Computed example of a mutant assay.
Amino acid sequence: MEFKQLEAFVQISKLQSFSKASEALFLTQPALSSQINALEKEIGTQLFIRSTKKVFPTKAGINFYGYAQKMLALRDQSLCEMGNYSKECAGEINILASSVPSQYMLPQLIADFNKEYPNIIFRLYQKDSGGVFEELIQYQYDIGFVGTETESYRYKLSSLCKDQLVLILPKDMEYTGKQSAEEASRFITDKSFIMREQGSGTREALKGFLSKNGILEKDLRVIAYFSSTQGIMEAVSQGLGISFVSRVAAKVYENMNRINIVEIESEQLNRDIFYVQKKDMILTPAQELFVGYAKKCYQNVKS
């Protein structure tokens, strides 16, 4: 069994395509197929089901993926340990993140990281928090970032930073009351309200705030459900209604003078942004570098 065979197997599993994997590895498709055939012969079982559109792992392939990923990660770690975590470190990081991290945190973080480690390639995918927990376990994703917790035994969560939900209003609407949860609750119940979709970490935090103040979703005048924070802020700026979104996201539209922000005094509107790792997964040096860099950056922000 050779490392190049394991690399071929992992890339095909992630990309679900022989042609895309051959491009990523700079190999011809016949050469890639030859490596997989040799690996299947050595293991003694078929690893992929080939279809006209996608390639799917067999049950044996699913079981073997974890071992292959760990062997490659250990190889890379040992090579780095013999030298240093240098700027020459290369690799690929596939991230699945919910809307706030993917749109308003990770782009800047990746840009800053790239200045120090230019040879590491990123693939960033977006789902709501529920979707991240459902799909992160799949091969094409390495690590995740979300705005809510899970009880799933499949993942390890680490708090990366604190976030706060704020009330956002159209520019021509003023909030003149106190910033208490009680007054804010009375204010929002008779206004047109824009809600995030099911599975959103923002929605889960908002539900806690509403419940604490005796408000059910049916008590709100919900006129629209949006699948992204960006969509909600654009709708609010156009006067469609009011909503709650992450403060880090809202500041973008506030700086453009398109919405008003109200910070409500309530613990229920505070939450953590979490880094998510598959349980028992061994990070590659590139992944480990980025995770450590992200944690260090936000520790500096806290201090």
Score class of each variant (00 low, 15 high):
residue 95 I to Q: 06
residue 86 S to T: 07
residue 179 Q to S: 14
residue 46 Q to R: 15
residue 2 E to S: 06
residue 277 Q to N: 11
residue 198 Q to W: 05
residue 115 K to P: 00
residue 131 G to D: 01
residue 82 M to I: 10
residue 261 I to V: 15
residue 264 I to D: 03
residue 160 L to C: 06
residue 125 Y to I: 02
residue 24 A to M: 13
residue 252 V to F: 11
residue 9 F to W: 05
residue 6 L to D: 07
residue 196 R to F: 08
residue 188 I to K: 03
residue 184 A to F: 10
residue 249 A to C: 04
residue 263 E to Q: 13
residue 226 F to N: 09
residue 31 A to Q: 13
residue 50 R to I: 14
residue 190 D to V: 08
residue 147 G to R: 03
residue 199 G to C: 05
residue 203 R to V: 01
residue 200 S to C: 10
residue 183 E to V: 11
residue 35 Q to E: 07
residue 82 M to Q: 15
residue 132 V to P: 01
residue 238 Q to H: 15
residue 172 D to I: 03
residue 239 G to K: 01
residue 148 T to C: 11
residue 92 E to P: 02
residue 154 R to F: 08
residue 303 S to K: 06
residue 22 S to Q: 07
residue 147 G to K: 05
residue 186 R to N: 14
residue 68 A to N: 09
residue 126 Q to F: 01
residue 50 R to Y: 10
residue 166 V to I: 02
residue 13 S to R: 02
residue 294 A to Y: 01
residue 174 E to M: 08
residue 177 G to L: 06
residue 301 V to N: 09
residue 198 Q to A: 08
residue 81 E to R: 10
residue 35 Q to D: 10
residue 7 E to R: 09
residue 221 R to L: 12
residue 26 F to Q: 15
residue 38 A to F: 06
residue 1 M to Q: 13
residue 70 K to P: 00
residue 102 S to Q: 14
residue 266 S to H: 06
residue 132 V to A: 02
residue 261 I to C: 10
residue 54 K to Q: 14
residue 130 G to N: 05
residue 153 Y to M: 13
residue 141 Y to M: 02
residue 263 E to C: 11
residue 10 V to L: 04
residue 279 K to M: 07
residue 104 Y to P: 02
residue 224 A to W: 09
residue 119 N to L: 10
residue 272 D to E: 15
residue 235 A to V: 05
residue 272 D to K: 04
residue 82 M to T: 14
residue 33 S to C: 13
residue 190 D to G: 06
residue 234 E to V: 08
residue 6 L to I: 09
residue 2 E to D: 15
residue 139 Y to K: 03
residue 229 T to N: 15
residue 142 D to C: 03
residue 136 L to F: 00
residue 236 V to A: 04
residue 152 S to V: 03
residue 125 Y to P: 00
residue 220 L to G: 12
residue 107 P to S: 11
residue 144 G to N: 01
residue 7 E to V: 00
residue 156 K to L: 13
residue 21 A to F: 07
residue 270 N to I: 00
residue 209 F to Q: 02
residue 133 F to A: 01
residue 180 S to P: 03
residue 116 E to Y: 13
residue 150 T to G: 03
residue 11 Q to D: 10
residue 88 E to K: 08
residue 49 I to Q: 12
residue 250 A to S: 11
residue 117 Y to M: 01
residue 283 L to K: 03
residue 118 P to T: 11
residue 140 Q to D: 14
residue 8 A to P: 05
residue 47 L to E: 07
residue 271 R to Q: 12
residue 47 L to P: 07
residue 63 N to L: 11
residue 87 K to G: 15
residue 256 M to Y: 15
residue 1 M to L: 14
residue 166 V to Y: 04
residue 224 A to Q: 15
residue 114 N to H: 14
residue 41 K to D: 09
residue 167 L to V: 06
residue 11 Q to L: 05
residue 33 S to D: 12
residue 27 L to C: 03
residue 68 A to G: 13
residue 180 S to W: 11
residue 8 A to C: 14
